[in-house]
Amino acid sequence: MAVTGVVLIGFIVGHLVGNLQIFQEPDHINGYGAFLHGLGPLLWVARIGVLVAVGVHLWAATSLTLDNQRARGADYGCKHTIQATAASRTMRATGYIVLAFLVYHLAHFTLGAAQSATFKENLPRYTMQGDYRIAGFLVIKAGTAEVPDVYNMVIRGFQHPVVSACYIFAVGLLSFHLLHGIDSLFQTLGCRSARWSAALRKVALIFCVGYFLANLAIPGAVLLGKLQVRPPMCVAVPR
């Protein structure tokens, strides 16, 4: 659980950083999308890697839960919790809801099965207005046309308040899930002790709150009208 947890945390952080480019010019997020698509087989390796991590995480959680329920046997008539955190006690529920959301999220932004009208493949193509660079390296040149318009897809997607609400709710639960997950993975990997466990809890809390707020920013900005749909830029930029 801990190892796949680390992989998945790595993924969601990366994903978030990528998504936050929406607050920049459309070139950024669209260039980023084009870059990812341009990776071809590599993208698939990464996607499969993440899916495997999700699968293993799920499998581990399920078998652990079944084992653990078996280990208890007959249950108590009277239950009492001394210090287990709410996050730790709701891992299964938050996990399932986040999983369900994940399926929807993929259907929405990756496969286009949900809200297909706003899906990037169904929107007019975008033409890069400037160079898109990652860490100084030029990855997508200005003037590249036929780029999927991720920018508008996201904004149009989130303009639907129910979609945004679901998204916010799910990310909230994911953050809550992480609150125990982060603390817990240090324990499972054997690098947690009383000396810094209090600090670790704080770091985990700050991380989770930060993660939530950053994720909240995107639908929040859309709903508040700070991010607006922009007309697609189909015109080639003069060199």
Partner: peptide, 15 residues
Amino acid sequence: LGFGSCTNQYECSAA
């Protein structure tokens, strides 16, 4: 022996 696994809730040390 059929004991369960640790999910790091620390009820053990509290009890």
